[in-house]
Write a protein that binds this DNA or RNA. Sequence first.
DNA 1: ATAATACGCAACCTTAGAGTTGCATGTCAA
DNA 2: TTGACATGCAACTCTAAGGTTGCGTATTAT
Lengths: 90, 90
Amino acid sequence: MHNDLVFKALADPTRRLMLDELCERKEQTLYELTARLIGRHEVAISRQALAKHIEVLEKAGLVSSERRGKYRMLVFNDEPIRGVTDRWLK
Amino acid sequence: MHNDLVFKALADPTRRLMLDELCERKEQTLYELTARLIGRHEVAISRQALAKHIEVLEKAGLVSSERRGKYRMLVFNDEPIRGVTDRWLK
DNA sequence: ATAATACGCAACCTTAGAGTTGCATGTCAA
DNA sequence: TTGACATGCAACTCTAAGGTTGCGTATTAT
């Protein structure tokens, strides 16, 4: 299944939270995102764990990243999500 | 998260296939479903494994079941799926 | 009554995934 | 240039999820 990675990506609550944040602010550095998740949302998790999650989201096409100097810019993309559940709805 | 179980349920490709079948024929016995998945879709899996998947789908509210004599009737319910991805779409 | 049938339950195995720790790399500012 | 900072990489632990095997239970048909 070609959208297997998308469903797998959405299966984790932390990743869904990350998508919420990225959805609000479309462009964000990994550092900003990490700070917000740990600071505001009180997510008890390490930086490396979040980096792994980003990797999963990237492979699913939900996030694209680009190294910009010292930082890593993250860009949210909702396209892979659009219509994923349509097959079960009439 | 209250729809955590829904996303977890959708994460597995076999369960998504089961939902496809159940979506086509809203009412179906576990036996019929198992026969179709193994026969038609060539899913190499045991009956017990499918029973476990049904359990997951039930806990997510996507399937309700009712013992009808010798058989177990399965009824598909799309309500938990409706709008689950809306939070990431404008 | 009894055998075949559809299902339930429980123990077990195996692997993938989430998370951590530790260290290396690259970039920017002073 | 040197140190602080943001990130990358790899090995390791631990748990849960998917799957199997084996046996028990209930229902139907002969």
